[in-house]
Design a protein around this nucleic acid. Structure first.
Lengths: 201, 201
DNA sequence: CGAGTGATTGACTTAGATCAATGACCGTGG
DNA sequence: CCACGGTCATTGATCTAAGTCAATCACTCG
């Protein structure tokens, strides 16, 4: 969908990127640290956490491969939470200074960056909207409607059904069952890694 | 939180904004129309919908006062869905041409705009993260952790509890019950429109 | 050829949705 | 100035969809 950061970065910025490995359980940065830039998760999972006085942690966000971390770093001077590796992870740092300089210097790059962010906002809004739907079936319908191809009735599944289930906020069992029922009712038809919507008579 | 669009728009763009009233049920634009700009919903509710061949509509998104509509318009040339008013609504159009020109001309404005989008992305991510939490109690905990004030244990509620419930994706009943239980357990204390987190011993 | 994972289905449990009723509060119009 | 309609806050009773636990089969990969 072209929503991921690295597709939009100028070669200048990309050249200045630094990769770093974070062993599971280790932290990448801590609240109060000075912000250094924008991170992209290359593999593994990172989580942003905050701790209450009793030491219990609250997960503010978790980012897997392809996600970005700490957009905050673009405008804040210090981090306001910790980033810790849930699994062994590899991250790529795009230094703040480079990014900001590039944004100032190159209006075209700035525009690309803005477009990317706008797309992210739209995508996130859509996903949030979907989570508002309580019924599993309607949630699946929403997903299908949003992701239907040009013909308006074919949806190509990118990953596994388990991944899709996670994305929809359902257990994989619930998704399997929902799809099975929709198929039985003739609402959809599964063809390989594709779902075809049938017209409702 | 400074996440809303209009706070970040330059006076130039703001001056070029056009307000428009949309009666309930009427559409603001339809799929295929040329994009004209970015809309902000001033009052009422608009929804973005797509129709399948059987005429049933799928709601892709719904936007209430303060929300923006059609960020797509920033980079796409035509709309890919319909925007229809769920209730009588008033929207404000920030013309695309003005916005893009301004973004090109004024790097500072572009930066502000980018910052605003980045904030939106962060906020949306956090909310999405919250929706991943199944337990009502943990969802409330997440909300409290994220929205705790400087002291880390006081959360000021902005709207009504019903609004909060909707925001959390819970029914208001579920929220009342959860808060009641947390209070009974001594985890929180409600003081007027404020919730205070207690340390867990 | 096992080990690991995805896909699928069954049985059972439960948290939260739904339906319902009540009290508090608030503006407002007669 | 007060009765009335409206909304929020709250709690009870009940229902159900989805979560949880569990088992099976297919498939791939080293």
């Amino acid at each position: 969908m072209g929503e991921s950061i690295h597709e939009w970065l100028s070669t200048t910025v990309r050249a200045g990127a630094v990769d770093r490995t974070v062993p599971a359980g280790q932290s990448l940065f801590r609240a109060g640290d000075k912000t250094v830039g924008l991170y992209e998760v290359l593999s593994g999972t990172m989580r942003l956490v905050r701790y209450d006085r009793s030491g219990r942690e609250a997960i503010l966000q978790s980012a897997s491969a392809g996600d970005t971390l700490a957009e905050a770093s673009l405008y804040a001077s210090t981090y306001h939470c910790d980033a810790v590796a849930t699994t062994h992870a590899v991250v790529r740092l795009y230094p703040k200074t480079l990014l900001l300089a590039e944004l100032n210097r190159d209006p075209k790059f700035a525009q690309s960056f803005t477009v990317m962010l706008a797309q992210q906002v739209m995508g996130l809004r859509t996903r949030l909207e979907r989570r508002n739907i309580h019924s599993a079936r309607d949630r699946v319908r929403h997903f299908l409607a949003v992701n239907a191809g040009a013909d308006g009735r074919t949806v190509a599944l990118s990953g596994t059904l388990k991944d899709l289930a996670a994305d929809l906020g359902l257990t994989h069992e619930a998704l399997y069952r929902t799809l099975a029922r929709m198929t039985a009712d003739g609402e959809i038809k599964r063809v390989g890694a594709t779902i075809r919507l049938n017209r409702i008579v």
